[in-house]
Design a binder for these strands. Sequence first.
DNA 1: TCGAACAATACAACCGGTTGCACAAGCGTG
DNA 2: CACGCTTGTGCAACCGGTTGTATTGTTCGA
Lengths: 346, 346
Amino acid sequence: MSTTLQDIADMLKLSKSTVSRALSGDPRVAEDTRARVASLARHMGYTPNPTARALATRRTNTIGLAVPWAPRSLSDPFYLEFLGAAGDEAMRSGYSLFLSTPDGDGAGAVRAHAELADPRRIDGMILTEPRANDERIALLQSVGLPFVVLGVVPDPLVSWISGDNTTGARDAVDYMISLGHTRIACITGPPDQTASDARFEGYRLAMSGAGLPLDRNIIEAGDFTQSGGYSAMHAIIGSRGVPSAVFACNDVMALGAMRALREAGLAVPSDVSVVGFDGISMAEYVDPPLATVKQPIQELGRMAVQILIGRMSGEGGPVRCILPVQFQPRDSVGSPRLGANAADRG
Amino acid sequence: MSTTLQDIADMLKLSKSTVSRALSGDPRVAEDTRARVASLARHMGYTPNPTARALATRRTNTIGLAVPWAPRSLSDPFYLEFLGAAGDEAMRSGYSLFLSTPDGDGAGAVRAHAELADPRRIDGMILTEPRANDERIALLQSVGLPFVVLGVVPDPLVSWISGDNTTGARDAVDYMISLGHTRIACITGPPDQTASDARFEGYRLAMSGAGLPLDRNIIEAGDFTQSGGYSAMHAIIGSRGVPSAVFACNDVMALGAMRALREAGLAVPSDVSVVGFDGISMAEYVDPPLATVKQPIQELGRMAVQILIGRMSGEGGPVRCILPVQFQPRDSVGSPRLGANAADRG
DNA sequence: TCGAACAATACAACCGGTTGCACAAGCGTG
DNA sequence: CACGCTTGTGCAACCGGTTGTATTGTTCGA
């Protein structure tokens, strides 16, 4: 058994309440007593029992982090980096990180979150992949548990943090347009997921800003996985004519798309340019290096924790934070082949 | 506030001990009483307070998972998949997953783990990336906290689980040899990390089994990161003559190596073949698709949790488990160019 | 008919902290 | 010298469960 307050109290012939106050810096205990307590506590290697403290204070010093698991099976490096940074920051701030990987979408996920969102277990929660009218958010609000969302949420009472999806996407597509591309495909994320929608919006703005038509034939929904990007690209080139460029709403889908292009005998970027979104470190290492919109992933993780801690302390109102992102041109993007666009546009 | 045992006891004019026993299925409570308690508990949405229960039982129902953070910054998708599967399995078994991302190697890591390995906080721990004579293992043993290691540990008292590193690596290198490669480079992981050592051992066995010399000039230490693989490959081709094939001790280093080769104007696989290890899903999507030794990553995660739960229950002795891996040939491996080996060997 | 055996429930201590309030000693003041 | 005030400490309740033991009320055999 480890040392308890009572142990220290006994040795010093004090009561455990005095010892508790001495250690917590209560001004009512004599300086001399405090010093003796502190010294003995150090020598005995005393650390407070987190469980007992949690029971008494009703604060667990634990943050819940919900990242989607099935059916995506967590293959997106974006989350690993986010999660690592969040965990690091939480630990630095004296919080534990309780990781939960709720299954699936829809009703199952909501039920799973209902279990997780227990104020007796965690003090606050970081929610990822919000959807439009996300029931999980309503749930958290009804429970009264502080939370912060990774991704934009329209409700002005909700705190969230996000990369600047729309601007980033727009910059990326603008860049392709500036090179002369006019027929630019888009592979979106799961419909109604806010990050996906916002990136698509950036695509839309860039296209309409340049007076280019939005061609639904070369806009295809993916699911933020490699295989989803692969299938979407396949569908686009299979039945609808080859675009000269593709904007994928995240990096792993871009990698999937690149594979589909290769298999169709199309070279990147000479036949088709590809851009992704997120800035996972892998993007720099593939061939050709993938142009992408770099999100400050680690900063997102750290700030999510900081914002949440602020919310948990109850100070101030909801915080909404958009971090700047930066388009990073790389070799996966080039000028369109002369005539290619005209030919394809048929 | 949520419902407590006392609330239920009051409504039913019972004592909270009876209610507690009724809910836990103690045979001493009358069937009729049990039914009434169960029914009311359900109607009131009672769930036991995890903290209070933990304090009373001295079991937290929480598993700690330590994955290394700095300086690697968690970019290896292998861990994300492992972690997702482990989290899923833990949750399914009624455990919470407490994620910790201790900083760095060496003394700092040990100190960090000392904090984490608190039996008052977690019931058991999953440790990753063991090293030879790992102090963290000694620490866990001295604390008496049950744990399981992802990776081979020689100490017969320690439970661990691992893919079959040596066989997998040997199969991969054997395959390259069977294609006619004789000058095969190796990019290892951090020295003294057991997974790295075991994979190198597979490489060594394959080479010596085929009567090929071990050439220290084309064996270079990486650090299991993309950039580490990149630098290592760079070093090998820069100063020591180009090998006809490379075995990298994990996939992300293989991707780094492929980039270095590209930049040096060498084609994969026509100039140099490349094989990785792990079987991250990304490997299938790069160009050319990366041959790799597939580990059953999700199964590793699930079984790590199961083994740990077994250890925590105190039954049986230490469990050591090696899961089979499978070499997966892909286009990153081809036959050596005729004469290339001879020329380079000169 | 009485005591033993048994079933069902209540009481109370305990896990290890936190915290409101009571209490004692020491002080200066009127 | 009695009073109130400050300072330092202790007592005890509380957080919400679990669990060893006492207590109550039946039922049964002798």
